[in-house]
Design a protein around this nucleic acid. Structure first.
Lengths: 223, 223
DNA sequence: GAACGTAATTCTGAATTCATAATTCAGTCA
DNA sequence: TGACTGAATTATGAATTCAGAATTACGTTC
């Protein structure tokens, strides 16, 4: 009787955590905005209990902040927060890169390379959205390739806080080109199974991304 | 009017998260054990609602696992989990070491050194408990010294999952001596403000600790 | 007309209640 | 005796209710 899979109907609160997280990450709920408890309950067709349970989880992840007796607000993403978060993501990606070099199968590497080609194509077509998607997919594939779900979880938590920043910045063309070049190198190092090299590159790649974001934000603040 | 601090009476659920986390980390609730919802409610004198909210948060941290319609259990800490967690902690401590070298004040370094001397004293007296405390304090001081609260949070989450392993292992005398030597080096590098060096040492220190834990666990499993 | 004080309303945190799923246990039959 | 069935009990997930805090609306006073 191992054929039949166990039926799993996810609990309401787990479902709500996912849905709400998406709302925040996809910028449907904007930073600083109050989380409309009642409206969300009606929208999702659930009572307040599971929704509030979900809010507590999101708060522990740092995506929202709870104010005593004043409900929840979507966390503001400040430059200071970016400065704290990017280096951590960089450190985790370094580790992921080292592990992925050892653990990723040849098929897995081929998959990364395929994504990379999609990304380059998107770059050539000036399609920022597709570029972003492919870029995301590559990083996720490497993280997943590390075969460490705890690492993956923490990376996802941190990345989700920073991802919203993409709504705020427009990266320069130079940085875009530079990023492509770094990705080219990544593929090469991955194919060569150069763990230390890939780890180091992923770290600097992320720190470069951080610098680019900082610069873009400073420009926008000035204008 | 910046003098008066805002009065903060922590919400029940926040309080409960802390208390329950302690119960798990201090091994009052043992891995695999069912979390007795009703009993805890009575013990803390609260209703199920805030307690269950706290359980959801703890579950998202990975300290407990929720089984649909079958309540919560304290997560088992497996060797596989240690293998996944230690490298991540090592990577974060590396980063923390690099940052602390730059940001820690001279007074902060002096504090770390003081803790270190306490630790050596505990080592000489063969007082494992005091040693453990001082060791903990040193690592926490370095993490805090990095001045990155997000890094601190994630480190704490990961460390709490591994800390319970200390109830399972008895480290060898050789490893103990080795750890002391590594700590001596740490102080030296910190004083020299050698960021790269300290970072690298913290990482290998943590990986050595991992290896020691692995070895001790393997011995116990064999016996 | 602006500032303050008070009442009404809304919202939040937590307790309670309710429906349902899981577990336990007694009874039946092989 | 032992395995299976089904009722009784218990525990869980979620809705509802309730008390109290915060916000808003309104009236009063200067």
């Amino acid at each position: 009787m191992n054929i039949i899979q166990t039926i799993q109907r996810p609990s309401l609160h787990a479902e709500l955590v996912e849905r709400l997280r998406s709302l925040v990450i996809e910028d449907e709920l904007k930073p600083g905005e109050k989380v409309p408890e009642k409206a969300l309950c009606e929208a999702f067709g659930v009572s307040r209990t599971p929704l509030r349970e979900a809010l507590k989880v999101l708060a522990s992840e740092g995506l929202i902040v709870l104010q005593a007796n004043r409900g929840a607000r979507v966390s503001e993403i400040t430059i200071g927060e970016l400065d704290k978060t990017f280096p951590i993501i960089a450190a985790l990606e370094q580790l992921a890169g080292e592990l992925a070099c050892e653990k990723l199968s040849d098929a897995g590497i081929a998959n990364v390379e395929k994504r990379h080609k999609e990304m380059v194509a998107a770059y050539r077509n000036n399609d920022r959205h597709a570029y972003f998607q492919a870029n995301q997919a590559i990083h996720n594939a490497i993280i997943a390739g590390a075969g460490n779900d705890i690492l993956e979880t923490h990376h996802r938590l941190l990345a989700s806080r920073v991802r919203r920043a993409r709504f705020m910045v427009n990266l320069s063309d130079e940085r875009w080109a530079e990023a492509i070049a770094e990705h080219e190198q990544m593929i090469a190092l991955l194919k060569a199974r150069n763990a230390q090299g890939l780890g180091a590159l992923l770290r600097t790649h992320m720190l470069n991304k951080h610098a680019a974001h900082r610069k873009a934000l400073a420009c926008e603040a000035a204008s």
